[in-house]
């Protein structure tokens, strides 16, 4: 168990520089973005008031109020989130393949550690999950900060103050990474973890059987996804909503757990019996 925690720490450390850069870009881009977007809004408002003699209320009714929702629809906000998502998705593969390729062959070391090899797999998955959560946490902290900043940049008449939760619920796409309730949160991230496990296991298929393994891996992904989505697919085929939403949810949770457990079990088999350096 200690070695698992050490491995998690170690895997985080290896990605830390790049992760720091992503965090830096996120913070900088959102803050600078807020400043730019607010200023341009105020400029337009001032222009409208002084040149076209509009009242603040008229300007607002034509252009809408300035709120964080305006920021969330710009590249300033979405860019870094996309960057983080792409980086972490990429990392799902990178976290394995860099140990096989390159000048060093660190995979030898990892597989020769006096600990169950599945710990390496779990540690890599945990590190990715922690990094996702870290980015989310930073976003949660950033929203109130941006709220305050907005108050300095935009005068009361033009401003719509929203609570962070309101910002999130006002923007559907954001709800995936920042779910409103604890259940939604667990569902979204549970599904995320399952995807990591499925992809990791597919990667290990490739690493175990190489070219044939790509086929095995693809079949595994299709199978796992198929099983997970089977109730929804079946309902689609039958054409009726056979299950109540709550029943469907419970079934999906169970299937998700089964698929995750199966992925870990298969990975354990591959790592101990089939893997090749």
């Amino acid at each position: 168990m200690m070695r698992y925690f050490k491995l998690v720490n170690f895997e985080l450390g290896r990605f830390f520089k790049l992760y720091g850069v992503i965090i830096g870009i996120t913070i900088l881009s959102q803050l600078v973005g807020l400043w730019v977007v607010s200023n341009s809004y105020m400029e337009r408002a001032n222009y409208a008031m002084f040149e076209e003699n509009l009242s603040p209320a008229q300007f607002v009714s034509d252009n809408g109020e300035m709120s964080l929702l305006v920021l969330t629809r710009t590249l300033w906000f979405l860019g870094p989130i996309a960057l983080g998502a792409i980086a972490l998705l990429f990392n799902i593969f990178f976290v394995w393949y860099r140990d096989w390729f390159g000048k060093n062959t660190f995979i030898y070391r990892l597989l020769m550690l006096p600990t169950a090899r599945i710990n390496v797999y779990l540690a890599k998955a945990t590190s990715i999950l922690l990094m996702v959560l870290g980015l989310v946490a930073i976003q949660i902290v950033l929203l109130p900060v941006e709220s305050v900043l907005l108050k300095w940049l935009v005068t009361r008449d033009f401003r719509l103050d929203l609570a962070p939760a309101e910002v999130v619920s006002g923007f559907r796409e954001l709800m995936i990474i920042l779910p409103a309730g604890i259940i939604d949160f667990i569902l979204a991230y549970g599904a995320g973890i399952m995807v990591i496990f499925i992809l990791f296991t597919a990667i290990l298929f490739e690493r175990s059987y190489r070219i044939k393994g790509i086929v095995f891996g693809a079949i595994y992904v299709a199978l796992a996804t198929g099983i997970f989505l089977s109730p929804i697919i079946l309902e689609g085929i039958i054409g009726t909503n056979y299950l109540y939403p709550m029943e469907l949810l419970v079934l999906e949770i169970i299937l998700g757990l089964i698929v995750s457990a199966a992925s870990i079990w298969v990975a354990n088999y591959l790592l101990t019996k089939r893997i090749t350096v």
């Binding site: 060093n104 062959t105 660190f106």
Partner: peptide
């Protein structure tokens, strides 16, 4: 896994 406290392998490329 316990064997790796008893046997070690030094490959021809560095494993660090």
């Amino acid at each position: 896994k316990q064997s790796f406290e008893k046997i070690t392998f030094i490959p021809d490329a560095i494993t660090m």
